[in-house]
């Protein structure tokens, strides 16, 4: 009897989880649909009304993250070079180092680390901001002014995040490569021109395209998911719960998308 009770509990728990997953999935689908529907409002929308939101969001997501991104990039670039110089043979490393940096930093770590930093900094902020605005009836007041809130709140954040991530990824790559070069000089001397030449050789336009594609995808995903969780709380005490959920699920999505893109283009 007790065993049956345990089985029953387990089945009920599983059922609840599955139902919660699917209802969450359906809700997110509705949200996406409403965003797409909101694009109909674009014809009524004057882009200038989004200007200050885009500007503010870019400042917070992009400009204010430059220092953090630079430090992380420098450390990661150095780490890659140190590992490479320890594990790979010394001969021919000058021509190999370009491939290694392009392979690891530009293709993978650059976009991924940037997306993670943006999610942790700005994704959580976006979620918390929207949730607070909702609690303060600001979102309702926008609706009452005849403003399409989905478009007005989500759209400028997507634009700002895409632009910020693209800029940050480029800065990340440049700092990581420069940092990697400076650290590599501790172990092996490579003339700067030769280093630059090997990087240019190793880097292809396909890499550039994929980096942009990843930045674009993250730029859409991060604000989209974080805004979704920002709209969810129905009371103030739920705000931290949904903010945390926004960050975790966005990070998970970022990893999945990163793997998918790499799988599609490099395999």
């Amino acid at each position: 009897m007790r065993l049956w009770g345990k089985i029953e509990n387990f089945l009920a728990l599983t059922g609840r989880k599955v139902i919660a997953f699917f209802s969450g999935y359906i809700e997110f689908q509705h949200y996406l649909k409403s965003i797409f529907n909101s694009f109909k409002s674009l014809k009524y929308l004057r882009m200038r009304s989004l200007y200050s939101t885009v500007l503010l969001q870019t400042k917070y997501t992009g400009l204010d993250a430059v220092f953090l991104i630079s430090v992380v990039a420098l450390m990661l670039g150095a780490t890659v070079i140190i590992q490479a110089s320890q594990k790979f043979p010394k001969f021919g490393i000058d021509s190999f180092i370009g491939d290694l940096l392009v392979l690891i930093i530009i293709r993978e770590i650059g976009p991924l680390a940037t997306a993670m930093i943006v999610t942790s900094r700005s994704g959580s902020a976006i979620s918390a901001e929207i949730a607070t605005q909702k609690q303060n009836h600001e979102i309702r007041s926008l609706e009452l002014l005849g403003i399409d809130t989905k478009l007005y709140i989500v759209f400028p954040r997507i634009i700002a995040t895409i632009l910020s991530i693209i800029s940050l990824v480029i800065l990340f790559d440049v700092v990581a490569l420069a940092g990697g070069y400076l650290i590599s000089r501790l172990f092996i001397f490579i003339p700067p021109q030769q280093f630059l030449a090997t990087i240019i050789n190793a880097f292809s336009f396909e890499d550039l395209l994929i980096t942009f594609l990843k930045s674009l995808m993250y730029g859409i995903l991060i604000p989209l998911i974080c805004c979704y969780y920002g709209f969810r709380p129905t009371s103030a005490f739920q705000i931290p719960i949904f903010v945390s959920r926004a960050v975790v699920r966005t990070l998970l999505s970022v990893f999945i998308v990163n793997a998918l893109i790499s799988f599609l283009f490099y395999l």
Binding site: L55, T58, K59, G62, L63, V66, L163, S164, I166, S167, L168, I170, L171, V174
Partner: peptide
């Protein structure tokens, strides 16, 4: 500043 943030990269 925001303009420079876009232009430099």
């Amino acid at each position: 500043k925001v303009g420079l943030f876009f232009i430099i990269p």
